[in-house]
């Protein structure tokens, strides 16, 4: 299974991974429409900064995922590709996964339809390489086999 590897030495704090993530998870997948017209999804990666260090962090798809343990009704599950994803039909928005995640990468969705449900990195099921990795201008994110 491939996972997004974070190389903090190369992160230049441009936030383009977040931009790409938002675009990828938008309805139109058009950068200007996603930001200006549509209800904007939240970025599933977030760039942390503590001078001079910066890095983008997103779900690590842990082997022993604490979020899956914490989920009371099986919404948080491992999909057929091996990534930990959330089934929004089952999620009740109890946020136990948010509490359990050691990386703080599970967030509450802000879109009206799915408001308050858990949302997290889904490793871009429609793409070969996740959008954040492709957008990173300095190879701070790479998609590598583990």
């Amino acid at each position: 299974m491939k996972i997004v590897k974070i190389n903090e030495d190369n992160c230049i704090y441009c936030h383009l991974c977040e931009v790409a993530c938002i675009v990828e998870h938008s309805q139109s997948k058009d950068i200007i429409k996603a930001f200006k017209k549509e209800e904007r999804p939240i970025a599933r990666c977030s760039v942390e900064f503590n001078y001079p260090l910066s890095l983008s962090i997103m779900c690590r798809h842990c082997d022993d995922a604490p979020c899956m343990e914490a989920c009371q009704n099986g919404a948080m599950h491992r999909d057929e590709r091996g990534y930990v994803t959330v089934d929004s039909n089952k999620c009740v928005g109890c946020w136990m996964c948010v509490m359990a995640c050691p990386y703080g990468v599970i967030k509450r969705d802000t879109r009206r339809e799915v408001w308050g449900l858990s949302t997290k990195c889904d490793a871009c099921p429609d793409r070969k390489i996740p959008a954040c990795v492709e957008a990173c201008p300095n190879n701070a994110l790479t998609f590598e086999e583990i």
């Binding site: 230049i12 936030h15 383009l16 931009v19 200007i32 930001f35 200006k36």
Partner: peptide
């Protein structure tokens, strides 16, 4: 302004 999505990448750079 029509193109600027306020991502602030330029501000950081």
């Amino acid at each position: 302004n029509d193109r600027c999505i306020r991502c602030k990448a330029c501000v950081e750079q």
